[in-house]
Write a protein that binds this DNA or RNA. Structure first.
Lengths: 206, 206
DNA sequence: TACGTTTTCAAACGTAGGTTTGAAAACGTA
DNA sequence: TACGTTTTCAAACCTACGTTTGAAAACGTA
């Protein structure tokens, strides 16, 4: 692998990630990607063997990026009181609300897949979802020590869902009729509210 | 309005609803719709003034259909103890989990819009979301009588989110690694679990 | 039945999409 | 430097899309 060709590859990946996140797979054209990346149109077929191959790469990177971010703090959680660990988890889950950064983009690519998962995505999920689900399950287990596995899984999904409804619908919630402010203070307020309700929901005193 | 032309209209709407639900707006072609509806291709432009006009009609029907279910029971809720009203709300929200019917299809059309809302959808939401949000807000207000409007709104969204994470990701949750069973018994069990956690979360004794 | 309107139809139009092509350029190495 | 390989490039190709067209058919009504 020579250096310049790697640059082209990276430029394509970066542009593709942005556009796929914004417009989804179908809504993003090869021509739009190459225009943004400032490379030749044929480069995508040369480097990634077509649009689908490029998407596969982007998806994998997004998935890794997301889980890596969350798994990086898994170690901390064990050392915290369960209440604090839960609050930290929720705060991290809400992070894309205020930050319009890489994590936010990754999550968006992810979201496109939840409506109609591509085979590529299904495969990825089957292979790599376990660590994150395990982390979340471990967290709720601290509140439901004698629950069975099925209940723990549902609790984990429940917890994730409480956060993701705000993250996913960020744009609608920002406008009328809800008009939820989304500055840092509001996000922190929201995180505390969700923490309290979740703690109580799982039967912990607050 | 003559009779046969109404039949054509209905056939198009029915076919379009199915296809838009399955593949989304971009993923559904006019040609696929007319093939399923067994009508001429130009009929869509004649009756709906183009693909976007057709989508507008389908979206409106989906929205009405979805909220109608909850709104129809809004009257009942007032007469129930708040705990029962909440449980009934959750059970209704989870209904698309077990029923692969019209409601399920409507929700799916809705879901396509959450990633990147079309202007058509935004307009619809602005015009018609208020009754459903009002209903949900009224419900949570019974648990948080002295909360301000912003908190009530967040609580309402929180409640909706807890249900929608299961409904939205039904397909992924049914498969590995979660492998959540989704027969009627399991859905009822899930509804009760969510009811309990939500009740506790909102500070009610169970 | 006769006539103006509404509705259907097959065909074509123009555009945008992903991919392919074959040659030119850049590159690494002997 | 010379040469085989890798990478870039502009152009073309082919397909699928949404829409338009103009005439034929069906319709409602007088």
């Amino acid at each position: 692998m020579t250096r310049p060709s790697e640059i082209t590859r990276e430029r394509i990946l970066k542009a593709a990630e942005r556009l796929f996140a914004e417009r989804g797979y179908d809504g993003t054209s090869i021509r739009a990607i190459v225009a943004r990346a400032r490379v030749n149109q044929a480069a995508i077929n040369y480097h990634f063997d077509g649009k689908e191959g490029l998407y596969r790469e982007v998806l994998r990177a997004a998935f890794r990026g997301l889980t890596a971010d969350q798994l990086a703090h898994a170690g901390d959680a064990a050392g915290l009181p369960r209440e604090d660990a839960l609050a930290a988890f929720i705060r991290r889950q809400l992070r894309p609300l205020s930050a319009r950064d890489e994590a936010s983009r990754h999550l968006r690519i992810f979201n496109w897949e939840t409506v109609r998962p591509t085979p590529v995505f299904r495969k990825l999920l089957g292979e790599e979802a376990a660590p994150f689900m395990g982390l979340t399950t471990d967290l709720v287990r601290r509140f439901l020590p004698q629950a069975d596995q099925r209940t723990l899984l549902v609790a984990a999904i429940w917890l994730i869902g409480q956060c993701s409804v705000f993250v996913r619908n960020r744009e609608q919630l920002a406008g009328p009729p809800v008009a939820l402010a989304l500055d840092d203070a509001a996000v922190e307020w929201l995180a505390q509210l969700l923490s309290r309700w979740t703690l109580q929901g799982l039967g912990a005193a607050v």
